[in-house]
Design a binder for these strands. Structure first.
Lengths: 159, 159
DNA sequence: ACGCCATTGGTCAGCATTAGTCAATGCGAA
DNA sequence: TTCGCATTGACTAATGCTGACCAATGGCGT
C-alpha cells in the first residue's frame, strides 16, 4: 500500500513531467484538500522528499497570494553516478584526500572553481567546528566531512 | 494571479530597465492612482521590495515638490560585496531568512542555482548535526549557520 | 519676514489570508 | 514487539492591503 506521502510525491513529480518545466507552483491548502489531509502533511512531503540533497529547492511565501514553488536542478540522477560518488568518497576522508578529489573533479570539468571553493569552505567549517567547539575525535571529524562531501556532490548530480 | 505588490514592483523594475539609470523618481500619489490603491501601498512595496538587503536605497521628500527616489546600488569591488554580505547576514539567521537571502542573491545574479544548492545542503547539514548529534541550542545553531553562510558567500565574493 | 494652509509623503495598527513548526500519536514492516 | 516513518492539529509567523492619523515642505497672503 502506497503511503499518502508517496502519493503526493508522485503527484508532484507528475506535475514536473507534464509541465516539462524547471519549476512547479502549488498552494498548500489546495493540495491538502485534493488529498484530504491536513496542510502540514504537505510540509512533511517537502521536507522528506524534495530536499536540496536530492536536487530540489523549495521556495514559499505566506500570507495573501501565498505559494509554494519547487525547483529542480536536474531531471534524473543516474544511479551509477551516486554509487560512484559513494565509492570514491567512502566513509571518511582526510583533508588531503578531499582536496585531491576536488582537484580531479575540477580537472574533469565536473565542478568549476567557485563550486570547489564552496565545498572546501563548508568542509573546513565542519572540521573546525568539530575540533574546537565540540571536541570530536579526528576519525569522527573525517566521517562528518565525508558525509557532507557526499551530500554536496550528490546534490550537484554530476553528469 | 499576481499580487498588486508584485505588479508595482515589476512596474518600477521596468522603469530601471527602460531608463538604464542608477535611480528612478516617483510620485507616491500618482503611482497609487495608476494602480488604483491607497498611497500607503506604495510604501509597502518600497519597504518590502526595494530594501538595502536587495541592493536599493530609497530617499524621499514630503510637501511641495515631494518625491520618492530609488537608487540601485552596485557592488563591483570585492570588498564592497563582502561588507554587504556581512550586513545582510548578521550574527544569526533562521533557515527561512537564509532561504530568502539566497533567493534574492540568485535573483541579483550573484550566485547561480548550483551554487545555491551547495550552500543549502551545507547549511542543512550543519543544522542537522547541531540539532541531532550535538544538541546545540536553536540560537547557537542559527549563529553557526550565519557563520557558515558568511564564509561561503565571502569566498564567492572574492572569486 | 511671518505664519497659515495646501500639498505631499510616512507610520502604524488591524484584518484577512496563507504557510510553518512542533510535539503527540498512529501504524506498518522487520 | 519495537523502531522509525507517517499523520494530525493546535499554535505561530509572515504577507498583503487599507485607512485613519501624523509630519514635513513650500508658496502665498498679509
Amino acid at each position: 500500500m502506497a503511503s499518502l506521502t508517496r502519493v503526493i510525491e508522485n503527484y508532484i513529480n507528475n506535475l514536473f513531467s507534464e509541465m516539462d518545466e524547471q519549476a512547479v507552483s502549488l498552494r498548500r491548502k489546495e493540495l491538502a484538500e485534493i488529498f484530504g489531509c491536513v496542510p502540514s502533511q504537505i510540509n512533511y512531503v517537502l521536507r522528506s522528499r524534495f530536499t536540496p540533497e536530492r536536487g530540489y529547492i523549495v521556495e514559499s511565501q505566506r500570507g495573501g497570494h501565498g505559494y509554494i514553488r519547487i525547483f529542480r536542478l536536474c531531471y534524473d540522477i543516474p544511479e551509477e553516478r551516486i554509487n560512484h560518488i559513494e565509492e570514491i568518497v567512502g566513509d571518511a576522508v582526510t583533508d588531503q584526500e578531499a582536496k585531491r578529489l576536488l582537484t580531479s573533479l575540477q580537472e574533469r570539468g565536473m565542478i568549476d572553481s567557485r563550486e570547489r571553493i564552496l565545498i572546501e569552505v563548508a568542509l573546513r567549517h565542519a572540521d573546525e567546528l568539530g575540533s574546537s567547539e565540540f571536541d570530536v575525535s579526528p576519525y569522527k571529524r573525517n566521517a562528518i566531512q565525508a558525509e557532507l562531501l557526499k551530500r554536496m556532490l550528490r546534490s550537484l548530480a554530476l553528469a
